[in-house]
Computed example of a mutant assay.
Amino acid sequence: MTLLVADDDRQSLSAVLAADVVPVRTDAVAAAVARDDPDVVVIDGDSVADPQAAVADVRANAPDATIVVVGTTDLDADVTTATSDERSVRAAVERARRVTNYRESVSDLFDACRDRALGRPDDEIRERRREADDRFDQLPEDHETFAAALRTDDG
């Protein structure tokens, strides 16, 4: 699910994000991310008064969400795009989804390793590793995407 944080009625941005988008105002972002547990959060940097505060609210309440900021590139987001045209926004959200998929595959691999009985081979671990490797190979090859993929909860 994708959450759109915006303080005005930007129907064009909502339409670009497709059917699974849930719009929310910045004053309700903390509650919305805690309730909805979104995979991707898009922050409309042109419509919110303090985009960095919105990023901080998302990080505090949904640390696993991948954050896209539209309209500015100087924030602590995972993916940014300076323009809000349809092509740029769709590309940014697609990059964010790939980051989310990679993070989830690494988390699944970690869980499988943690739950494995010591000294016993495990086909599930091998499969999870292959999946994580495949998802890593699908990441766009740029610094911003790799930094987002490797981000931890503490920054």
Rank of each mutant, 00 (worst) to 15 (best):
D76H: 10
D64T: 09
V89C: 10
R25Y: 08
R129H: 12
V41F: 03
R130H: 13
R103C: 04
D78K: 03
A92C: 08
D46H: 08
V42H: 01
R97G: 10
A34V: 06
V89T: 06
P51T: 01
A82Y: 06
D64K: 12
P23M: 10
D85C: 10
A60I: 07
V79Y: 01
S105D: 02
V24H: 01
P63N: 11
A77F: 01
S107A: 14
V33P: 00
V21N: 06
E94F: 10
D64C: 04
T100M: 13
R128S: 03
V106Y: 02
E104F: 07
V24G: 04
S47K: 06
D37Y: 05
S47Q: 09
I67F: 05
V21T: 11
S105W: 04
N61S: 14
L118C: 02
V33I: 12
V99I: 15
F136H: 13
A32D: 02
D27P: 04
D108V: 10
F136I: 00
R90G: 04
T80P: 04
R130Y: 05
D27V: 11
A34M: 08
A56E: 14
D39L: 12
A132D: 05
V33Q: 03
P51C: 10
T81L: 09
D115N: 14
A32G: 09
D123I: 06
A34S: 15
L75V: 15
V99K: 01
A54P: 03
A31G: 15
D74N: 13
A30D: 11
R130W: 04
V33H: 03
N101F: 08
I67G: 00
R114N: 09
V55P: 03
G71I: 05
V48Y: 03
D37G: 13
A32M: 09
R114G: 09
D57S: 15
V21D: 03
S47P: 06
A30K: 09
R59S: 04
R116I: 00
V106N: 02
A91F: 08
D64I: 07
D134W: 07
S88V: 07
A117G: 02
T66Q: 07
A62K: 00
R87F: 11
A53T: 10
D78A: 12
A65S: 15
D85A: 15
V93Q: 02
T83H: 15
A91I: 04
R87C: 07
V24A: 12
Q52A: 14
R130Q: 08
A132F: 04
V41N: 01
V55T: 02
I125Y: 02
A30S: 15
E94C: 06
R128H: 08
V89I: 12
R126W: 00
D44C: 09
D122P: 01
V29G: 02
V79F: 05
L75H: 11
R59E: 11
R97E: 14
V42Y: 05
D108K: 11
E94S: 14
V69W: 04
C113F: 10
Y102I: 07
D85T: 13
S105Y: 03
P23F: 08
P121N: 11
A60F: 07
R98M: 14
E127F: 06
T83C: 11
R35W: 09
D78F: 05
R114E: 14
T100G: 12
L75M: 12
